[in-house]
Amino acid sequence: MRFGLLGRLDVLTGTGVAVRPPGALPRAIVARLLLGRGAVVQRDVIIDELWWERETKDPVNALQVQVTKLRSAFAAAGEPDRFVSGHGGYRLVLADADELDTVLFEDALREGRDHLRAQRYDAAEQRLRAGLSRWRGRALDDLFGRPFDAERTRLEGLRAAAVEEAADAGLALGRAAELVPELAAAVREEPLREGVRRRYMLALYRSGRHTEALAAYEEGRKILDVELGADPSPELRSLHSSILRHDPSLRGTTSVSPATAPAPPPRRHAEGTSCAPWARSSADGTTSRRCGSGSRPGGSSRSWVPAASARPVSRWKSAACWPRDAMPCGGWTLPRPTHRAHRRASPPPSVSPTRACRPASCPTTPCTASPPSWRNGTSCWPSTTASTSSTR
């Protein structure tokens, strides 16, 4: 049989025949026994919970009469042995093949949470959606009384949590735009639930609807102020501030990874020139890069070396390219000259000037400068000192 409590009470036999308890009180008895999930519910508990507002001289006898009516209704649908009395109470027998939608929903919720913790977002969303599909309306919709009110509150809380966690999985999978209508409805249904509103704002932001995300926050702030005299939670205020700043962390985790991202185009430095590999290794084994031929901005025809490619990179200044003849053989990078007659500068303290000079792969010739030095391109580099000089 199939029993439904996530909506109006629904009872169907295995062949699809509906069992219709005769009246509101018999329906309440069936629902109360279903809340026991096959366990015995004491007679006094049933009377206290279902007859506490009814003026009945003999509630025990009244309960027996209602159970007899239920047995007849189930027997007429082909299920004669479902109600069993004993141990001071009654129980509704649930076979292994029977389905109770509250149990199926909670099982799906538990499995979905396990998948979500393990970051298996596809499986998490599938299980959570399967659980939410069991709902047909408000839980225990046509039943009234203390036990049903408490259980309704519990189940509705689990439902809202399932909506939030399904939204978490969907956001992680990049389905923000698809989630907006569902979360908008959830916010209208429970305007004071900040968890739903927070995910609604995030879904709007990731869908490119930034102003609507800010408006959703303002609406929630006003509702909290008017109805409770309270401010939004720190989590909601933090999200609001992040949206105002366009914090990059709000974009989610589904952007293109560096491994799959397309390679950027070559950097352009001068009229139609671009950086290309420079087949020269420095003294410490690192490979530098050289800009292709072409003129630098300003008209000079020097070759230029991208600073980001020289190893080790200078800690002094960041620049796109360095003059080829200002690059020592050792591979460390000089500050970019500020005028046409460029200045030489001292290497970083961690780089030895002797290590920077005369590698095997560097075309060098003795220089006549004093003290003894080596010529690299058009510049002389001291072999024992790193004094700053200028060439004009």
Rank of each mutant, 00 (worst) to 15 (best):
F3R: 00
G4K: 04
L5M: 03
L9Y: 01
L12F: 11
G16P: 02
V17K: 12
A18F: 10
A18P: 09
G23N: 00
A24H: 09
L25D: 06
L25C: 00
L25T: 09
I29H: 05
R37V: 04
G38A: 03
V40I: 00
V41F: 00
R43V: 01
R43T: 06
W51A: 14
E53H: 14
E55L: 06
E55W: 10
T56Y: 12
K57H: 14
D58C: 10
V60D: 12
N61A: 13
Q66T: 11
V67G: 05
V67Y: 07
K69M: 12
F74E: 02
Y90R: 09
R91F: 06
D98H: 07
L104N: 01
D107V: 11
A108S: 11
A108Y: 04
R110P: 01
L116F: 07
R117I: 09
A118S: 04
A118V: 04
Q119W: 07
R120I: 02
A123V: 09
A123M: 07
A123L: 12
E125W: 09
Q126H: 10
R129Y: 01
A130Y: 05
R134Y: 15
R138D: 14
F148L: 07
E151Y: 03
R152W: 05
L155I: 03
L155H: 05
A161M: 09
V163S: 02
V163E: 01
V163R: 10
L171W: 06
L173V: 00
R175I: 08
A177R: 09
E178T: 02
L179W: 06
P181N: 06
P181Q: 03
E189K: 07
G195M: 04
R197E: 05
M201R: 05
L204V: 11
R206G: 10
R206T: 00
R209T: 01
T211V: 06
T211K: 14
A215R: 13
G220R: 04
G220C: 09
R221Q: 07
L228T: 05
A230G: 01
D231N: 13
S233F: 04
E235Q: 14
H240Y: 13
S241E: 15
H246D: 15
D247C: 09
D247K: 06
P248E: 10
L250Q: 01
L250K: 10
T253Y: 12
A259I: 13
P265V: 15
P266V: 05
R268A: 07
T273D: 07
T273W: 10
T286Q: 13
R289Y: 15
R289C: 15
R290V: 13
S293Y: 13
P297Q: 13
S300Y: 03
A310Y: 11
S318V: 14
C321G: 07
R324H: 12
D325S: 10
G330C: 04
W332A: 11
T333W: 11
P335E: 02
P337E: 04
H339Y: 14
S346T: 11
P347E: 05
C357F: 03
P359L: 02
C362M: 06
T364H: 11
T365Y: 12
P366N: 10
P366V: 03
C367L: 01
T368N: 12
P371G: 00
P372Q: 01
G377Q: 09
T378G: 12
W381D: 01
P382W: 04
P382L: 04
S383F: 08
T384S: 00
S387G: 12
S389Y: 12
